[in-house]
Design a protein around this nucleic acid. Structure first.
Length: 1079
RNA sequence: GGGCGAUUAACUCAGUGGCUAGAGUGCUACCUUCACACGGUAGAAGUCGGAGGUUCAAAUCCUCUAUCGCCCA
C-alpha cells in the first residue's frame, strides 16, 4: 500500500477523514474526571456579524496549539467554543441590509420583526463560522458550543445583573452619546468615520453685561459649529493666563533647541507670535480673570441669555482669543468642563432625536440643525457680532451607517460603578472564596500584581511580555471610569429593570409584592434625584416616586409583572452592552449559577455532575489561559477579571497569551470590511489547513504585529495581484488588473464587477513543508519494509544514529521549552530545523546505504521509525491533520516503535503522549564530531562547484589534519565517502600534498580534491581568504591591545578572544604557506 | 492630545550588552541522484531609520528625532 503513496499530500481528503475520526472517537470531548491536572481555554467569541478572517484564524490556531499540546501532556482539557451576539455590530449589519434590499428601517418591522431577522442572520453565520473553525482543525468540544444569547448564558446575565444591582453597583446617569439623527439611535465610536473637510472658524462677540469703563465690552469666542452656541452656558478663561503663556513659550523654546535648520524659521515665527501675546492678549485676559472672580456675566447673543464667565484650564491663552465658549450638552470637552463646574453652570440640550432644534433654541425651535446654522450666521452678521471668519480644515464624524454627521447628545444611561466604594465590596459572595476589595476596578488591578493571590492562590500573568500588557491593562483600569452598560438597541439582553413614576398608593402594592416574594428573589429601590437608591420601605412623602424594579429571572417576572405594569412601570427598552455578557463567558458557559439545572438545549453536553465527578463549573473554573489579541485587553480581559473576581471569588484564568495582530501588506489591520481580509476557508482550500497553520505558527513571534501581504487573484488572468501596490479602481475596494487594465472588486461591493478572491503567497512555505514532511515519512515507510520492533541496545547504534538521537533529544527539549515560553515560532522553528536540516538533509542521506544492506538495515530502521514517530508527535499541535494521517500509516507499517523500550501511543496521535526529552541521548562529543564531518563535506562540495565537477563524478580526496582529528575521521570514513561521493579518502597528519589537487583551507585542516587544479583560481580564493582573515585578526588584535578591555571585560570573554586570535593565526599561516606554493 | 509599540537582506521576521548579525521566502549558478523540483547543492545580498550619549564593548541600554501602526481621548 505504501508504495502507492502519492508524492503529494492530498490534504482535502485527509482533513475530512481525520476530523471525522476525532469526532467519532470523542477525542475532543471535555468531561470532568479524576485527573487533577486540567487545562482550560475559553474561546474568545467571534462575532456573528460575519465570517472569520485571518486574525481569527491566528487566534483559533494559537488556542488549538496549546490545547493539543496540553492534551498530549495528559491534562484534562476543555476548549469551550462559542459565539457572541455582538449587539451593535450585528444589528447594524442586518439593519443596513434591510434598508439596502427592502428600503425599510427597523421601525417599519418592529422589535420582534428585527430580532427575527437578526436571528436568521446569526444562524447563517454561526454555521459558517463553525465550519471555518472545524476546517482549520480546531479541537474544541462542539457539544459544549455556547452563544451569548442562549438559555444558559441569558440566565447568567440576569443573575449577574441582579447581583450588581442588589449590591448598589448599578446606577443611572447622564452621558453624551454619538447620535445618528437619521437612524435616531446612539452609535458606538467604532461606527464613526472621521473625515477632514474644509470648514470655517467663526469668531463671535459676546457682549459683557454692564461693562465698566476700563473693561472690555465683549469677549470673542471661536467655533466651527456656530449653531451650538444656542446651548452655551458659560465662557471659560484660563485661571492663570500668564503662567500658561510662559509654559507655552518654554515648550516652544525647547522644541527650537532641538529643531533642524529646515524647521527653525517656522518655529521661530510661532514663538514670536506667542511672545506678542503678552502685549496683545494678556492684559485683556487678566482683566477677564478679575471680572470672573467678581462673578460677571456675558450675554449670549440671539437668545439674550446671561451666562457666567468661569475659570478653567481648558481655555488656552495661546490660542484664538484665549476665551472659549462652553456647550456642555453637545461637546465632549465642554461636558468635562461642566462636570467640574456643575454647581455654577447649566447644561442645555438643544436637539430633538430627529436632528431638529427643540424649545431651548428659542426662535430657532423646530428648525433642522443645518438650517439653524444658516440662520444663526445671518443673524450674528446682521447684529455686527461676527468678528471674522477663518478657513480651516476640520474633522467631522459621520455615521458609518447613515452617512450623516454625528451629533453629541445628552441622554440617560445605565452604569456600573467601577470606582472604590465606601466600606469596600464583597467578592465571591456565597462561595468558599469570599474576599473584600475597595472596588471593582481595584480588585482587577490587584489581580495582576505578582504579590497578590486570590483566595484560591492565583493571579493573572500576561504573555509573552508580562509587563507591557499588564501596564495596558492597569492604566485603563486605574481610571476607574464607570462602565456604561446600556445600549439603545434591540438585539441583546434587555435590561431587566422596570421603572416609572409611581403614586403613593401604588407604591404600597409593589411593596407588598416585594414582601411576598421569597427571600432575596426580588429586589427593588427608589431612586432620588442624584441616582442614589433607597429602600421603598423607608420612603416618606406623597410622591410620585421614581421606582426601579430589577427582576432576577423569568419565573419571577411572570409573577410580578401583572402588578408592575398596571402601576405604570415599564421595562427599560435598552439592552446591555455586549461586553457585559461576554465578560461572564468563563463561567456562564459552565452553567453558572447552577450547572445542574442549566438548560443546555438539544444535543448538547449536560453540565451537571456525572459518574461521581464534579460538575463543569467546579471542575473547569478557574480556567488556564486566555488567548487573544491585544485590542481587547481592556474591553474584554479586564471585564472578565472583574466579573470572575466579583461573582466567583477567583480570576477566570491565570495566563493571558496576547498573540500578534495580523495586518495586510500596507500595515493596516486585517478585516473583512476593509476588503483586505483573507477567508481562512479559502486558504484551507488552496493550501490545506496544515500549511496555513504552519505559517501562522511560524509568524507568531514575540512582536505585536505581523504583516501578511495579500494578493487578489485576478478574475481576468488568474494571476496574483499584490494589493499593497496595485492601483485602486473607482473605490478603495476595487483594483486595476495590471495585465488587462480591467477593474475588479475584492468585496463584491459593485455588482457589475467580477469579485476576486484574496490570497497570500506567504502560505507557499507551509505547503512546501507539508510536502517535505509527507515525503520524508513516505521514504521511511517505503524503507521500513517488513519492520517488526525488537528492543535494541544502545551499543548497537552507529555513530550517525547516536548523532541524530542527540539532536532529536535537544529538539524535543527546545520545542517544549519554547511552547512553555509562549513562543510558537521558535517552537516550530526548532522542530523544523531538526526535521529538515538535520534529519532529512543529513541523517536520511547517511543511512541510505545501510537501509539497502540486509545486515545493517535493522538498526537503521529502528532509529528511523523512532525518529519519525517523535517528529510526528512534535509537529502534531502545529499541523494536526497531516501528522494524524501519517501516524495512521506509520501504525500500519510499524505498529510498535522504540529503542530499548516501546514508545507508548493510543492509536490516534491527538491523544498520544507528548515525548519525553530522552536526555540520556545527548552527547556533546558526537555532535562535535558531526560538526566536523559536515564541515568537510561542505568543503568538498564547495570545491566541486568551484571546479564544476558534476556531483555524480567520483573523486579522490586527501585531508591533512591534526592527529586527534585524524582519529575522529577514522570511524566516519564511510560517511564522508558516501556524502561527498568519493571513491578514495586519505586522512593523516603527515600526508603529502597531491600534485594535481584543488585545495580548501578549513580551520586548521587542508582538504585536497584530486584531479582538478587551476593555480590561478586557487590563488584568487586563497587571497580572498587571507584578506578576510586579516580583517578579523586586526579587529581582535585591536581589542586585545586595549588595556581597558583586558582589565574590565569578563575573563571568559578575554580568553575567548585570545583563543580566536590563535585559531585565526594558525589558519592564516596555512593560507600563506599554500599561497607560496601557487606563486 | 495621552499611552503602547515598530523601524535589521528585495519581502516577512528572529536576534534584550561579547564569536564574522541569523531564518524563511525571493534572487543567481549548477543538478531531473531510485522520499521530495512544493526538491537538492553552492552562492550573492544588510553603514541594524537618523543624531547624540553611557560602556572595555551597543542592532541590543539612555536621550532626542523622523516615519509608520495600534489603543484611548
Amino acid at each position: 500500500m505504501t508504495k502507492k503513496l502519492s508524492k503529494h499530500y492530498d490534504f482535502s481528503r485527509a482533513q475530512e477523514i481525520v476530523y471525522k475520526s476525532w469526532l467519532d472517537n470523542g477525542s475532543m470531548s471535555a468531561l470532568p474526571d479524576e485527573r487533577k491536572n486540567r487545562y482550560v481555554i475559553m474561546m474568545p467569541l467571534p462575532n456573528v456579524t460575519g465570517a472569520l478572517h485571518m486574525g481569527h484564524a491566528m487566534d483559533n490556531i494559537m488556542q488549538d496549539l496549546f490545547i493539543r499540546w496540553h492534551r498530549m501532556l495528559g491534562d484534562n482539557t476543555l476548549w469551550m467554543p462559542g459565539a457572541d451576539h455582538a449587539g451593535i455590530a450585528t444589528q447594524a449589519v442586518v439593519e443596513k441590509r434591510l434598508f439596502e434590499l427592502e428600503g425599510k428601517t427597523r421601525h417599519d418591522i418592529g422589535r420582534q420583526g428585527l430580532i427575527e431577522r437578526i436571528r436568521a442572520w446569526k444562524d447563517q453565520y454561526l454555521t459558517r463560522i463553525i465550519s471555518q473553525q472545524q476546517g482549520m482543525g480546531c479541537s474544541c468540544d462542539w457539544k459544549l458550543h455556547r452563544f451569548t444569547m442562549d438559555e444558559v448564558c441569558t440566565r447568567a446575565v440576569r443573575e449577574a445583573f441582579f447581583r450588581f444591582f442588589k449590591d448598589g453597583l448599578v446606577f443611572r446617569g447622564n452621558r453624551l452619546v454619538n447620535w445618528d439623527c437619521h437612524l435616531q439611535t446612539a452609535i458606538s465610536d467604532d461606527e464613526i468615520v472621521h473625515e477632514k473637510i474644509k470648514g470655517h472658524f467663526w469668531h463671535v462677540r459676546y457682549p459683557v453685561v454692564d461693562p465698566e469703563s476700563n473693561e472690555p465690552d465683549y469677549v470673542t469666542v471661536a467655533t466651527t459649529r456656530p449653531e451650538t452656541m444656542l446651548g452655551d452656558t458659560a465662557v471659560a478663561i484660563h485661571p492663570d493666563p500668564e503662567g500658561a503663556l510662559n509654559e507655552a513659550v518654554k515648550e516652544i523654546e525647547g522644541k527650537l533647541k532641538l529643531a533642524s535648520k529646515k524647521d527653525r524659521p517656522e518655529i521661530e515665527s510661532e514663538l514670536e507670535q506667542i511672545k506678542k501675546r503678552f502685549e496683545t492678549h494678556l492684559p485683556r485676559l487678566l482683566k477677564l480673570v478679575e471680572m470672573t472672580r467678581q462673578k460677571r456675566m456675558v450675554v449670549l447673543p440671539l437668545l439674550e441669555r446671561k451666562i457666567p464667565l468661569i475659570l478653567d484650564e481648558w481655555a488656552k491663552p495661546e490660542l484664538g482669543s484665549g476665551c472659549v465658549k462652553i456647550t456642555p450638552a453637545h461637546d465632549a470637552n465642554d461636558y468635562e468642563v461642566w462636570l467640574k463646574h456643575r454647581q455654577e453652570i447649566d447644561i442645555i440640550n438643544l436637539l430633538n432625536p430627529d436632528g431638529t432644534y427643540n424649545e431651548n433654541a428659542g426662535p430657532y425651535a423646530g428648525l433642522d440643525r443645518f438650517e439653524v446654522r444658516k440662520r444663526v450666521l445671518t443673524d450674528l452678521e446682521s447684529r455686527g457680532l461676527m468678528e471674522n471668519v477663518e478657513d480651516r480644515e476640520i474633522e467631522i464624524g459621520h455615521s458609518d451607517r447613515s452617512k450623516t454627521p454625528i451629533e453629541l447628545y445628552l441622554s440617560k444611561q445605565w452604569f456600573i460603578k467601577m470606582g472604590d466604594v465606601e466600606g469596600g465590596i464583597l467578592f465571591g459572595a456565597g462561595t468558599k472564596k469570599q474576599f473584600s476589595a475597595p472596588g471593582l476596578a481595584q480588585a482587577a488591578i490587584d489581580a495582576v500584581n505578582p504579590e497578590w493571590k486570590s483566595p484560591g492562590g492565583r493571579h493573572l500573568i500576561f504573555h509573552p511580555d508580562p509587563e507591557r500588557y499588564a501596564s495596558t491593562y492597569k492604566n485603563w483600569l486605574a481610571e476607574k471610569r464607570d462602565w456604561c452598560i446600556s445600549r439603545q438597541l434591540w438585539w441583546g439582553h434587555q435590561i431587566p429593570i422596570w421603572h416609572g413614576l409611581v403614586k403613593r398608593e401604588q407604591l404600597n402594592d409593589i411593596q407588598s409584592l416585594v414582601l411576598n416574594s421569597e427571600g432575596e428573589r426580588l429586589w427593588s429601590w427608589i431612586t432620588d434625584e442624584e441616582g442614589n437608591l433607597v429602600n421603598p420601605a423607608e420612603v416618606s412623602g406623597s410622591g410620585p416616586f421614581n421606582l426601579l424594579v430589577c427582576i432576577r429571572n423569568k419565573e419571577e417576572e411572570k409573577k410580578i409583572i401583572p402588578t408592575l405594569e398596571p402601576a405604570g412601570l415599564k421595562r427599560d427598552p435598552d439592552v446591555l452592552d455586549t461586553w457585559f455578557s461576554s465578560a461572564l463567558w468563563p463561567f456562564s458557559t459552565l452553567g453558572w449559577p447552577d450547572p445542574e439545572s442549566a438548560d443546555v438545549g438539544k444535543g448538547r453536553r449536560f453540565l451537571g455532575s456525572q459518574s461521581g465527578h464534579p460538575h463543569y463549573l467546579d471542575y473547569y473554573y478557574p480556567g488556564s489561559c486566555l488567548v487573544t489579541d491585544r485590542g481587547i485587553i481592556t474591553l474584554w480581559v479586564a471585564r472578565m477579571l472583574i466579573m470572575g473576581l466579583y461573582l466567583q471569588g477567583d480570576v477566570p484564568f491565570t495566563d493571558c497569551f496576547i498573540h500578534a495582530t495580523i495586518q495586510d501588506g500596507k500595515g493596516e489591520r486585517m478585516s473583512k470590511s476593509k476588503g483586505n481580509g483573507i477567508d481562512p476557508n479559502d486558504m484551507v482550500a488552496e493550501y490545506g489547513a496544515d500549511a496555513m497553520r504552519y505559517v501562522l505558527c511560524d509568524m507568531q513571534t514575540g512582536t505585536q504585529d505581523i504583516r501578511l501581504p495579500v494578493q487578489a487573484i485576478s478574475p481576468y488572468t488568474g494571476e496574483r495581484v499584490d494589493l499593497a501596490t496595485a492601483k485602486h479602481g473607482r473605490t478603495i475596494f476595487t483594483y486595476i488588473c495590471p495585465r488587462t487594465g480591467k477593474e475588479f472588486d475584492v468585496l463584491g461591493t459593485i455588482k457589475e464587477l467580477p469579485k476576486a478572491k484574496v490570497t497570500s503567497d506567504r502560505f507557499d512555505a507551509g505547503r512546501a513543508f507539508c510536502t517535505k514532511l509527507w515525503n520524508a515519512t513516505r521514504f521511511a515507510l517505503i524503507n521500513l519494509g517488513q519492520y517488526e520492533y525488537k528492543p535494541i541496545l544502545l551499543i548497537d547504534l552507529e555513530s550517525e544514529d547516536r548523532w541524530i538521537l542527540s539532536r532529536l533529544s535537544r529538539a524535543i527539549e527546545a520545542v517544549t521549552r519554547q511552547l512553555k515560553q509562549y513562543n510558537p515560532s521558535a517552537a516550530i522553528g526548532a522542530a523544523r530545523n531538526f526535521f529538515w536540516s538535520e534529519l532529512c538533509d543529513w541523517y536520511l542521506e547517511f543511512i541510505k546505504p545501510r537501509l539497502k544492506d540486509q545486515h545493517k538495515a535493522f538498526v537503521a530502521r529502528t532509529v528511523l521509525a523512532f525518529a519519525i514517530d517523535l517528529v510526528l508527535r512534535l509537529f502534531h499541535p502545529f499541523v494536526p491533520f497531516i501528522t494524524e494521517s501519517l501516524w495512521e500509516m506509520l501504525n500500519e507499517q510499524a505498529p510498535v516503535r522504540g529503542l530499548e523500550e516501546e514508545l507508548t501511543h493510543t492509536g490516534v496521535l491527538i491523544s498520544s503522549p507528548w515525548p519525553d526529552s530522552f536526555k540520556r541521548f545527548q552527547s556533546k562529543n558526537i555532535e562535535g564530531e558531526f560538526d566536523l564531518i559536515q564541515q568537510v563535506i561542505r568543503s568538498i562540495r564547495n570545491l566541486r562547484v568551484r571546479y564544476q565537477v558534476p556531483p555524480a563524478t567520483k573523486l579522490e580526496a586527501v585531508i591533512k589534519a591534526r592527529g586527534e582529528l585524524v582519529e575522529r575521521f577514522g570511524h566516519s570514513n564511510h560517511i564522508l565517502k558516501n556524502m561527498a561521493n568519493l571513491n578514495k579518502l586519505t586522512v593523516g597528519e603527515d600526508v603529502k600534498r597531491p600534485a594535481l589537487a584543488a585545495l580548501q583551507v578549513e580551520g586548521d585542516m587542508e582538504i585536497y580534491l584530486k584531479g582538478v587544479l587551476n593555480p590561478e583560481k586557487e590563488k584568487e580564493k586563497l587571497m580572498k581568504q587571507k584578506e578576510q582573515l586579516n580583517r578579523n585578526l586586526e579587529s581582535i588584535k585591536k581589542k586585545l591591545s586595549n588595556q581597558k578591555f583586558i582589565h574590565k571585560a569578563p575573563r571568559q570573554v578575554v580568553a575567548q578572544e585570545k583563543k580566536r586570535l590563535e585559531d585565526l593565526q594558525t589558519q592564516l599561516e596555512l593560507v600563506n604557506r599554500n599561497l607560496k606554493v601557487f606563486s
